[in-house]
Write a protein that binds this DNA or RNA. Sequence first.
DNA 1: AAGTGGTCTAGACCACCGG
DNA 2: CGGTGGTCTAGACCACTTA
Lengths: 240, 240
Amino acid sequence: MKALTVDVICQTLAARIREGAFAASGRLPSERDLSEQFSTTRITLREALGQLESQGMIYRELRRGWFIAPPRLAYDPLLRSHFHAMAEQQGRTAQTCVLDARTVKVSREVAEKLAMREGEEAYRVCRLRHIDNRAVLYVEHYLNPAYFPDLLSFDLTRSLTRLYQQQYNIHYGRVGFTMLPMPLPKFAAPALKVAAGSPALFITRINRDQHDRIIDCDYEYWRYDAMYIAVEAGEEGRTP
Amino acid sequence: MKALTVDVICQTLAARIREGAFAASGRLPSERDLSEQFSTTRITLREALGQLESQGMIYRELRRGWFIAPPRLAYDPLLRSHFHAMAEQQGRTAQTCVLDARTVKVSREVAEKLAMREGEEAYRVCRLRHIDNRAVLYVEHYLNPAYFPDLLSFDLTRSLTRLYQQQYNIHYGRVGFTMLPMPLPKFAAPALKVAAGSPALFITRINRDQHDRIIDCDYEYWRYDAMYIAVEAGEEGRTP
DNA sequence: AAGTGGTCTAGACCACCGG
DNA sequence: CGGTGGTCTAGACCACTTA
């Protein structure tokens, strides 16, 4: 049972990273450098980097290089707290960019989620969210315009939660969500500076208000290594 | 913008699979066969298989080959329904093997979850669960023995939920869970016939009973492509 | 024993990013 | 423009599964 080259590289690099070796720049040496250091091929070296990547220890930006991964953010999809507040509670800094905000005709799929009809108009807000200056989440929000007249005239970099409350007196009620690991689709990849097809977490949520009306839904594409889900359920005790 | 070899292979194979090409055996031809069919290297061919794998279209069993992946199971960690019932509701068949069941001294981590002290004794039940004859979940259950005297004398291939009810008059109450994508640890890999280090979903749950006492916790290691999470939350409306 | 996937070598060219 | 990661070739040996 000889030690595999890949494993040796993984363990060595992991140890160096834990010791804070590349913490200064946050960046690893080039693949060619590393493959020489370990007297191996770039193929093999990349195999090792891939394993560390899948452990969430390092990550890459497309054609830019390899970087030390920051710790994961804890995320509760049942909580509708502001993204920024959530980040700050965990000692992180958040940033939001609005990539696009407009009226669109909803697809069949979105229509189903929002209890609307295919082709009806809804607001769509596409945003990119950063934690500690790293793009971690691309999210498309679909809002039923019946509940949010003139939404596009507001500042959408802010928390939608707060906007709902302050402008429309709408509060979140029940939530449902799905989550599945899937490769990052092409339209979300560039914003996250990630190769299309790399592993990601896809989350959809359907939100209701205090009157149990479906008010919006969203499609969230997370870097798979940027967060973990932590749900604390309330008093349900549903055991069918 | 030339079409990449890998992408061509992916699309071709994906199309063939959708047409039901390998449905009879459920199995793909060997890597050498395929690499010849596509006039390329095994390295490149494996890159393509890896992409299809990450899409959940195919999966591999360690050193055995590549197989067509069945559809994902919908899983709600907040529901404490019986695994078998859940599978059957979705038209699937489930199977459970008990790999190990014994008394152990709990680690600090488990002790914290169960509100016990490190080194105290608890029951640990390790089980392997199959869907449609494919091993998809390795789970370790830790039970506070104060609530479950003589647990080990019962048939543990059955639903623990039902055992709790029938033998101990204990019903599930609140639940909390965490979920994160991580590489499959070495101890869980063999049972799932998967290479250690391949991507997996790691879920932990902490369960309380009708009196809000913590009764058990578990560590679930899922094939990442075997399920997706679908949570329908109750009436909480928690907006901090 | 034959065939499989798992690992590895030693190169190469390309597209893109940054200075 | 040089250096980076992304892709690809044409082999090879090993450990394991399967028959």
